[in-house]
Write a protein that binds this DNA or RNA. Structure first.
Lengths: 192, 192
DNA sequence: AATTTATGTCAGCTATATTGACTTATTTTG
DNA sequence: CAAAATAAGTCAATATAGCTGACATAAATT
């Protein structure tokens, strides 16, 4: 390891401005923490020839068996074309399978295969381990505080949607609720 | 006023499932929150023809005036080639300037120009605003709890390095005072 | 019957990253 | 001092992950 942070003696001095209401430490911690958070899955995925995009697809399909392609696109906020490539690989390699909808036969409902589920769980566990390590020495209640903070980081107009999404168990079928908006009657108002 | 939304008290706190050793809600909140966190700068950067990579470079150069290229690479954990392209654009467009090191003339020490500094601050303020909105309805102490959590998410072996970088000191002062914004004096010599 | 929806596909483009080899200038070291 | 190491830059080739827009097909809805 080479002498980290040789960065010019004394140059870490902050800008001597009144603009110092900016929480640079928090901003940078978010950057570093998130990078670490994704690093463990990345290493495993690379062994399968997959990347982070595959992880996201695999994760949300595993969490929402039978999800429609359209809903998955809505969650990931990517285009059909971007999803297409990644999804095709996951299907070709037998991590995800598509089944025509029983009611609406246009739909290709997505499910993880056993193999896909196992990988999804393996990756989730890696992230869980890091989260557990991070939290274990912190005071009780830290997890809830962090969850609340993260939730509030989301635009108020999108919070219901996310709240609904992350509270859906693996049994619930998103296909039965094509409109993710307004599903949660939550009493959050304060538009700011 | 504002009965602190606390996002349905019981909803994002522990799920009642017995097999729920994996905190899917927390994992997914990290994904959604981080995406939102980067979205505001992304919109502004696009107006300049820049992307997130430019933001990272601009940010760390602005925070560490006179930083060496090598050290910047170490922070960003990207290759010289990846940095090169992005840095060249920032220099060509007069957001960053390079000055030969006074002591070691091989070095091209990086500084933001006035224009670059202003953009860096503008982007940091956007992120600050989102952070402030997220925290304002949460209990006192939330910021410190979140900082501690994020810090602990980093591999133990890398924590000191990050702590030095963001100026929280070598021995995890992170567990202490809520205001480490005003005292960003230099760290430099501290072993390692 | 006409329209909308769900999905897929084509062609081409952009941004960001990678590796490896090589050059130039400069500093450090044996 | 000569040799080696370092700082930085460059070239060529490649990969991943995203984008737009246009178009096609099947199935459902109006």
């Amino acid at each position: 390891m080479k002498e980290t942070t040789t960065l010019e003696q004394g140059q870490l001095t902050s800008a001597p401005q009144p603009t110092q209401v900016v929480p640079y430490d928090l901003i940078e911690l978010l950057f570093f923490a998130y990078r670490e958070f994704t690093s463990d899955p990345d290493d495993v995925l690379a062994q399968y020839g997959f990347g982070r995009a595959h992880h996201r697809v695999l994760h949300f399909v595993d969490r929402h068996p039978g999800i429609m392609v359209t809903d998955l696109l809505g969650i990931l906020k990517i285009t059909k074309q971007s999803l297409g490539r990644v999804l095709k690989q996951l299907v070709d390699d037998d991590f995800i399978e598509q089944r025509a909808g029983a009611i609406d036969r246009r739909q290709r409902l997505l499910h993880t295969t056993n193999k896909g589920h196992e990988l999804a769980v393996r990756l989730a566990r890696l992230q869980t381990e890091r989260l557990d390590r991070a939290i274990k020495d912190l005071p009780n209640g830290t997890t809830d505080t962090v969850k609340q903070f993260l939730f509030q980081m989301i635009d108020a107009t999108a919070r219901r949607e996310v709240a609904n999404l992350i509270n859906v168990g693996p049994d619930l079928d998103l296909t039965q609720r094509p409109d993710l908006n307004g599903m949660l009657q939550h009493t959050e108002q304060d538009g700011q």
